[in-house]
Computed example of a mutant assay.
Amino acid sequence: MSAAALREPAPAKVNLFLHVTGRRADGYHLLDSLVVFAGAADWLEAAPSAGLHLTVAGAEAAGLAAEPDNLVLRAARALAAAAGIAPAAALVLDKALPVASGIGGGSADAAAALRALNALWGLGWSEARLAAVALPLGADMPCCVGSRSCRMAGIGEVLGPAPRLPAFGILLANPRVALATPAVFRARAARFSAPAVLPAAWDDAAAMARDLAATGNDLQPPAIALCPPIAEVLAALRGLPGCLLARMSGSGATCFAIFADPAAARQAAGRLPGEWWRWGGGLHAQRV
């Protein structure tokens, strides 16, 4: 990385629960979710350049080979247009998160680009202003701009505070099957769930897991119907020593398991099949 380059993490977004609470007249679904960001992350580097360029590298780069107009580039152009400047930067995306996997990788990457370019271009825009630029690019973009634990509602753009979270470990696992979000929503049964009732805080991971067990992910059943390996991942996670709760994140196919601490999650990751994508640890250090 050059001295003038800026580097931003793009952490994995995990839905600890996801209720579909309704549907708007325009077809967008209304959601209720508790979102956290794991330590697993892509990284976005931005450096000065005469034009706008993106290079994708990293272990999961091949998953974006067929995507010539990456969401990162669209975010960069949107920010430049909003600021009234020409888009100019050399961007390098180090892709570690699997593509189309229910952990917001593309949105997190684009949000990281907005933060990096906000600094590179000397805009000094607030997080709220960046989130306004981000929303047209995707409903989960605003929460990724902040990369903080939050309660997410509306179509994903209404953000509120999360309960006070205890220290805990989280294990992510994906069977390396890409799953398109629209297909999962189309396969969903035509029913809606009530918003979850959560406490203001949890004392420990076990208490959090017990309360979250009363919630669910309304997209998990249709995702399993479309992608049966998700059920295998969930069964493997539930069989791990120390697993307090296992569930699918977002529209899948990535699933997560909650453990008492990051060390237990890291150790458990080593017990999963090597052909799966898996990661164990703690939460991303929240932005202040």
Rank of each mutant, 00 (worst) to 15 (best):
R278F: 07
N118R: 00
D261Q: 11
P166H: 11
A253N: 06
N118P: 01
A46E: 09
A264S: 15
I258R: 02
P163M: 11
A264V: 09
V99I: 13
L31W: 01
L240M: 08
F185R: 12
R191G: 12
F256T: 01
L97H: 03
V14F: 08
L240P: 03
G156H: 04
W202T: 02
L198W: 03
V56H: 04
A41P: 01
R115E: 01
V92L: 15
A139Y: 00
F259I: 05
A119I: 05
T181C: 04
D211N: 05
K13I: 00
A236P: 12
I170F: 04
P222T: 08
L226E: 08
S147W: 02
L219N: 08
E67G: 00
L97Y: 06
L93Q: 12
A61R: 09
L272V: 15
A83S: 14
R7H: 12
L71E: 09
M1F: 11
D26L: 10
E8I: 00
L79A: 10
A80G: 11
W121P: 02
V133K: 01
G169Q: 03
A206Y: 06
N174R: 02
L137C: 12
M152F: 10
A194L: 14
A111W: 00
A65D: 10
I224F: 06
P136N: 09
P9T: 12
N118K: 00
R151K: 12
P241N: 02
N70M: 07
G138Q: 08
A38C: 08
Y28F: 13
N15E: 09
L31S: 03
F256E: 02
L117P: 01
A225W: 05
A205I: 02
G242H: 02
A269P: 08
A5K: 05
N15W: 09
A213F: 07
A46L: 10
Q220L: 12
A285T: 14
P163K: 10
L212A: 06
L226Y: 08
V20H: 08
G282H: 11
F192W: 13
G58H: 06
S49R: 12
A83N: 11
F37V: 04
G122R: 09
L171N: 04
A200D: 11
V177N: 03
V35L: 04
A183S: 14
S149Q: 11
A190M: 03
L30N: 05
A223Q: 08
N15C: 10
